[in-house]
Write a protein that binds this DNA or RNA. Structure first.
Lengths: 148, 148
DNA sequence: GAACACCTTCACATGTGTGTCTAGGTTAGA
DNA sequence: TCTAACCTAGACACACATGTGAAGGTGTTC
C-alpha cells in the first residue's frame, strides 16, 4: 500500500513514517516510480516503533535494541548486553509504575462514576502558588498513589 | 533536605527538579533564606514524575492527570475523564508491548549467555542501504517479535 | 491536456526535556 | 576575613519528535 493508506491505518502521519525510515528503524520498499510501498510487516513494525517512542524510547535506543531483539543472530548485539540490562531494569520499573497508574486510574474512575458532583471544589492537590514556606509535604503516605 | 541531596538521592539533576517544579508538578517548600527544602514526599513524587516522563508522558499530561489521581476530590478531574480513558488504552498497549519486549530480551540474553561467538557476522536485520527496490518485507511473520 | 490527488525531497519551525553557563547570595570552616 | 561549597534565578543551547510549506514529479480521470 502507499503512504496515505499506511498512515491512515496506523493513525500516524506520513511524516512520522518517513522519519522512522530516515532513522533506519524502518526499511520501506519502493515501486518503480519511487513511491514508497508499505507492506503489512512494515505496518506492524511501524506500529511498534510508534509505541516505543510513545513509551519514551528514542529512535536511537530503538535502533540499538533492534539488533538485539531480532529473531536471528546475536552477533552485533554482543557489545550491547549491558545496555540491554539497563533497559531491562528500566522496563521493569516502568511496568510496575504503569501497573500502579493503571489501578489508580481505574479506582479513580470508579469513584468518579459514583458521586461526581458530590465534592464540589476539591483542593487541586498542588497548591503551587499558595503556601510560601516550608510546609508542603503530605503527612508521609508511603505508596505510589500518594500525591505530592 | 536541600537540592543537592535530593538530586543525588533521586539520581536526577537539580535542573530537572527545578523544571518539574516550574511545570507545577512539584510544590517544594522553602527555607527562610529562599533555599528549596525537599521533603520525603517531594522525593517520592519527583521520582514518579521522573518515571512518567521517562515513560513518554509530557509534563502537560502529568499535570492533567495530577488532579485525577489525587487521593482526594474528583472535582477538577471531571472534564478529563475521556483523556484518562485514552491514556488507559495507551497504558495497556504499552504494558503489553513491554511484556513482549521483556520476554524477548530475556530470551535473547539466554541465547547470548550460551553460544556467544558461535554466529559470527549476523545479518543486522535492517538492510537499510542495500536493496534499492521493492522487496523489503520479511515473509509476513505475524507477531510482535517479528523484525521489520 | 487540464485537474486533481497522490507522491517525492528539502528545509525551516516548534515544543519539550535537559544541559550548561552566568551572576550572584548564603553558610561553614581555616 | 577569605575560601569553598553550597544555594538561587535566568538565559541560551541542543537533541529529538513533529509540523508545515515549498517545489516539483506521477497517475488517473474527464
Amino acid at each position: 500500500m502507499q503512504a496515505k493508506e499506511a498512515s491512515e491505518r496506523l493513525g500516524i502521519t506520513q511524516r512520522m513514517l518517513r522519519h522512522y525510515e530516515k532513522q533506519d528503524l524502518l526499511s520501506v520498499g519502493r515501486t518503480l516510480n519511487g513511491y514508497r510501498r508499505y507492506s503489512e510487516s512494515n505496518l506492524r513494525r511501524a506500529g511498534r516503533i510508534r509505541d516505543f517512542i510513545a513509551t519514551g524510547f528514542s529512535t536511537r535506543e530503538i535502533r540499538a535494541m533492534s539488533a538485539c531483539l531480532s529473531d536471528d543472530g546475536s552477533g552485533p548485539c554482543v557489545g550491547g548486553i549491558e545496555k540491554m540490562l539497563e533497559k531491562l531494569e528500566h522496563i521493569e520499573r516502568l511496568k510496575a509504575e504503569l501497573d500502579d497508574r493503571h489501578t489508580a486510574v481505574l479506582e479513580r474512575l470508579a469513584v468518579l462514576k459514583n458521586g461526581i458532583s458530590s465534592s464540589d471544589e476539591t483542593v487541586e492537590t498542588m497548591g503551587t502558588t499558595t503556601d510560601p514556606f516550608v510546609r508542603h509535604e503530605t503527612p508521609a503516605v508511603p505508596d505510589a498513589t500518594d500525591p505530592q
